[in-house]
Design a binder for these strands. Structure first.
Lengths: 358, 358
DNA sequence: TTGTAGGCGTTATCAG
DNA sequence: CTGATAACGCCTACAA
């Protein structure tokens, strides 16, 4: 781990000036003889450019930060999976921040943009506060927000459309003949919880179905809480024939409880999840789930940011990625008669490629 | 996005020298009056330190790279989840590399260490080649390898013990009274495939069970291939009473096929997976799975690296993380009578916290 | 074609 | 306690 060689070392060894070394290294016109000497010296010394010094001079780090709320959340991981290759192929390194769902940490990340250790930032905040907006307005590097920002905020942003997503699911259930469609939601004081709850109500209205408080159960976005919520719901409304769950974990909890209660899925009760995570394809019966396009949003965000990094100016852009419904066994047809369809889930096969090395 | 203020800007404004500014900013002894002037100027200008310039001067970037083969692989993600907080709390940023299982990319990462854009590297290579070893020997920054390296390699490394892992599973099945225990493996020319296959054979031998070629089926590490393999196995050996699967996806495929064949799990056939991914807890019946401690390995690797970054020298260290068996419904007792136990899986509840923002 | 010199933004040494 | 000044490693006018 001796001190690495610099262009000075090379210059000495090759008997030329550091300017010539730099020229050769950057492919600028130089005499053949000089090129040879420099290359030889560089090779022998095992020279590698110092990225920090280059950055200081060029004012570009070739790094982009992605700030996610939670490294454990599959939705963010889906974004990450798409963002990574896009940035990589454009020559950028990815700096990963996990803000642990702490707003102060998000603010820190925004603030640290001023340190110029990255050329740009993609951020998926839980909630956009006043502090966010101020820092965004003053940001010294391009930022793309994945999520919604207030109208008028001058930032590129890529949003999901959970309203339409819920509607796709409800329409699907309705088309299957279900009429007592319940909603199992997470807390209403979260952005997704509120949005999904409202969308459910609207979708019912548009179909001419009555909104019934008894059919709505609030729990939390976890499996155990989902199970508990569904158990209560079932006790109150035994005749429910479909469950719209606010995420996949809740839906898994629902399957647990339905099974224990002797209900068949989907014959007696159809179940729909949201987010279309890997778990949806893995469960049994496999889970119909609303994809809000996390992967797509990540990809679009990365591309928007790259545009800015290429110097493209212009008005802030707002992209909405359409949701889609991944239909699986938990709603469509008699699951118990179906032959297994291992390749069904669209995420199968790219998970867990080789196990882990010994 | 005007050019940000530097210590020069501040110095001018406060009417002091840049040296004084630097002192104040770094908390070095300075007259109160000077401190006040500098702080005031810095505040008004919204000054933020330039990380690149600091790095150039200090020769430390406060960044660490983690190179994984595949951003989609749950085993690596488990490592990432542990590595991230450890580094963060020590003040390091995480640079994420996905090498897409391409050896050349891994070599690139190793080579780029010379660019000094990070202070250290954690790498989980698929396979360690000669090229790896050469670069590791010449590395200009500390490296920790997650995985096995040849004896004598002078690098810290953290390894799993899949041999013991397989044995835990086989012993468990044996204790449950299973005697016709089959192995559904991935390709034998992969490191995990070979290791797991050999471990299976040994474990049987130690229990005094005969090794039977008919009980071994090779497929690939995916769900569909796993299903196919199990179907063949079942056709050949209808009386098999336990399946040791080389990873969780194969095990999910096994569940698909067993269900279609009318076999009950675990009454007729017990099933064990490996890697203990989120999918294991999500499936139904939930899957007993051998954890090779991916999370733990990530954590240990990060800690080893931090030691080195703190300047601790000494001989390369080799840590082996012990595997453990996560027992769930697919082996233990009559799954169909059990009440749902949504909180059972040890990864539940930290997955998909809030869904994705609208 | 090549070398000298200045600067990117900080930190740190060394006189005053 | 403070202010010049010299690095850190690289790039790039400008001059030779």
């Amino acid at each position: 781990m001796a001190d690495g060689p610099t262009i000075n070392t090379i210059a000495e060894r090759a008997g030329v000036s550091i300017a010539s070394v730099s020229r050769v290294l950057n492919g600028l016109p130089t005499r053949q003889e000089t090129v040879r000497k420099v290359m030889a010296a560089a090779d022998e010394l095992g020279y590698v450019r110092n990225a920090v010094a280059r950055s200081l001079k060029s004012r570009r780090t070739h790094q982009v930060a992605f700030a996610m709320a939670d490294v454990g959340n599959p939705a963010y991981l889906a974004m990450l999976r798409e963002i990574q290759p896009v940035l990589k192929s454009a020559g950028y390194r990815l700096v990963l921040h996990s803000t642990d769902a702490v707003v102060a940490d998000e603010i820190d990340v925004l603030h640290s943009l001023g340190e110029r250790y990255v050329d740009g930032l993609i951020m998926s905040p839980l909630r956009v506060t006043e502090a966010h907006l101020e820092l965004l307005a003053a940001a010294r590097a391009p930022v793309v927000i994945i999520g919604s920002v207030p109208d008028g905020t001058r930032v590129d942003n890529v949003r999901a459309d959970s309203g339409t997503g819920v509607r796709l699911a409800i329409d699907h259930l309705y088309a299957l003949g279900r009429r007592r469609i319940a909603m199992v939601n997470g807390p209403l004081d979260t952005v997704p919880g509120a949005a999904r709850g409202a969308a459910y109500r609207e979708a019912l209205g548009d179909l001419g179905l009555p909104y019934d408080d008894d059919l709505v159960q609030i729990g939390d976005f976890y499996r155990a809480e989902g199970a508990r919520a569904v158990a209560e719901l079932l006790a109150r409304v035994p005749g429910v024939d479909a469950l719209m769950c606010a995420n996949d974990l809740i839906a898994l909890g629902a399957l647990d409880v339905l099974r224990a209660a002797g209900k068949r899925v989907p014959e007696d009760v159809a179940v729909v999840g949201m987010d279309d995570t890997d778990l949806a394809a893995a469960s049994w019966p496999s889970l119909t789930s609303v994809s809000l396009g996390s992967a797509e949003r990540g990809k679009v965000a990365a591309e928007l940011l790259l545009d800015r990094l290429r110097g493209e100016g212009g008005e802030p852009r707002r992209v909405t990625v359409p949701p889609h419904l991944a239909v699986r066994a938990s709603t469509s047809g008699p699951a118990h008669d179906r032959t297994p369809d291992p390749g069904h889930g669209d995420t199968d096969g790219r998970t867990d490629r080789k196990g882990s090395g010994a």
